[in-house]
Structure formats: structure tokens, C-alpha cells
Amino acid sequence: MSDDESYELLGFDNVLLCVGDLDEAVRFYGRAGFAVGFRLDEAGIAGLRVGAETPGILLRLEEVLGHRPPPWMAPRVWLEVADARAAARELTAAGIVLLDQPFAVATGWSVEIADPWGNILGFTDYTKRPELGRRP
């Protein structure tokens, strides 16, 4: 790129997570509170909505994974929620195992889960710093 050319980062498109079974992944993420925005089985993908934003979580089938974590480091994606401790209770009630109990962070509380392929999702709130959150 020459000095007179530049680009601007405008925001997120989608966060891609590789899974070994698309049906199982959609069921897991449905229990975790995600709604399916679209599903294209012929392409091996499903898009999950995240709030009112257009970008979301894109699940991509990688059959080679089967029912095991990938051989690479798993991504860690955190999403904002109104109350992470309430999210932890709802996730547990839905049969999802928490990686740990809710823990304090600088902005509030967080809790993490992992899908069957080792992708880690965190749910964090801004209860200590509401001015930084989406709903101050």
C-alpha cells in the first residue's frame, strides 16, 4: 500500500467459530441464548444474532474436528450482557457448564463457557462502569 492509500477499520463483520457438527452447535448455542439469523447447510455455516447488531457469530462446519477441540488455540470472544451473574444462572439452568464462577473484572462481572469444540465465549457486564456499556 502506498503512502497516499489508507483504509479505515469500520467495525466487525462476523466472528467465525469452527465446529465439528453444525446441528449440535446450533442446539448448543440456542441453549446459550443465541438466535439463528440464517443457516446455509449446503455451505456448512450458520449465523447467530448478537443483540440488534448486524455482525454476529458465524459457525462454520469443519468436519475434520468431529467432537474434539481443534488442534489450534481456541478463540476467546466476549459479549456484553446486562448482568453476567444472571447470565451465569441462566446458562447453568440450560445445562451449560461454566468454565468458572462469575468473576469480577474492572468494568463489572464476567463468566465464560466453552462449546464442545473448545471455542470460549465470555459474557461480561458493565455494572461497575455503566457509562462504558451499551446501556448506560
Rank of each mutant, 00 (worst) to 15 (best):
E42D: 15
V36M: 01
E42T: 10
L61M: 11
L48Q: 00
R39C: 05
E53W: 09
P70S: 13
A52G: 04
L58R: 12
V64E: 13
A43M: 12
G56R: 05
I45S: 09
A35H: 09
H67W: 13
R49K: 14
L59V: 00
G51V: 06
E42L: 12
R49G: 11
E53K: 01
G44Q: 02
P55E: 10
G56I: 10
G47P: 05
I57D: 02
R49M: 10
E53S: 05
I45V: 15
R68M: 07
G56M: 06
L61A: 10
M73V: 14
P69H: 07
T54E: 05
W72I: 15
A35T: 12
L40V: 14
P55I: 09
V50W: 07
L48R: 03
L48D: 00
P71T: 09
M73Q: 14
G47Y: 03
R68K: 13
G37F: 00
I45K: 05
L59P: 03
P70Q: 09
A35P: 06
R39M: 11
L48E: 05
I45P: 07
L40R: 15
A52M: 08
L65N: 06
D41A: 08
P69C: 09
R60K: 13
G47F: 00
P55C: 08
L65T: 10
L48K: 00
G47L: 11
E62C: 14
G47K: 06
R49H: 11
F38M: 14
I57S: 04
L48C: 05
G44T: 01
P71A: 07
E42K: 12
A52I: 08
G51F: 03
H67R: 15
L61P: 08
M73I: 09
V50A: 11
E42S: 15
G44F: 02
E53A: 05
G51R: 01
G66R: 02
R39G: 03
L61K: 10
V64W: 15
E62R: 15
G56C: 07
G47C: 03
V50R: 03
G66A: 11
M73Y: 15
D41Y: 01
R68A: 13
G66N: 07
R68E: 13
G47H: 07
W72M: 14
I57V: 13
I57R: 05
D41F: 03
E62N: 15
L58G: 08
R60N: 00
L48P: 00
M73P: 14
D41N: 03
G56E: 06
V50H: 04
G47A: 10
F38W: 14
L59F: 01
D41P: 01
L59G: 01
E53I: 08
L59T: 03
L58N: 08
R49P: 02
L40I: 10
G44H: 00
R60C: 02
G47D: 00
P71S: 02
D41M: 01
L61G: 05
